[in-house]
Amino acid sequence: MNKILFSAVSKKFVMALAGLFLLLFLPVHLGINLMLLKSDPEPFNTAAHFMATFPLVKVVEILLILAILVHVTYGITLQILNWCSRPVGYAVRNKSDTSAFSRFMIWTGGSVLIFLVIHFFNFYFIKLGIVEGDPENFYAVAQQLFVIPSYAILYWICFLILGFHLYHALQSAFQTLGLSNEFWKPVIRVISLIYAIVIPLGFAIIPFVILLFK
């Protein structure tokens, strides 16, 4: 039993499951965020309130936190092991034909993690009461942040990086879970591409609209 828990393949499997779970959450989050585009703060705040208080969502919230922790910890652990697998590197950079997205997952993932921490300070920790603020009016908090151009730009960059991460992540998850073959691989690739463009783009539109039109 030890072997399955600690094998690299299993770690990847768990990472992929956790990652997929996070991917399921993103469209929900995006759906709520899109309400920021309305001039009426009510729908957004109601949704935020619902997310903060409904018991079932509470369970999902714990799962999400766990998923992030597992995904990040395993990602870093595996990366360290992977670096150890080649103690002496090459003098000439490896030019093997691979997509850049796949080679830099640890870095894109790390960037997303930093963004997540900032994001938690801005919103989630307010809800938890760790940081000061009004948890009942996230609409106002968001509006205030997005009108700061430097914040909006940082936000865009982060979602661009998230897009890179997602494009490889989704394909990779299917491969790791053993759900890819000759027939499905191109299909999965297209789905990943659509997902990796639509979701980050959806998020990125919000500060864009707010900056320009408000």
Binding site: S7, V9, K11, L81, N82, S85, S96, S99, Q175, T176
Partner: peptide, 21 residues
């Protein structure tokens, strides 16, 4: 799989460099 880990090989990041080479 257990032996592969024991020998010290890294894990798969699905980059496809192996397939390419």
């Amino acid at each position: 799989i257990a032996e592969m880990d024991k020998q010290g090989f890294g894990s798969c990041s699905n980059t496809g460099a192996c397939e390419a080479q």
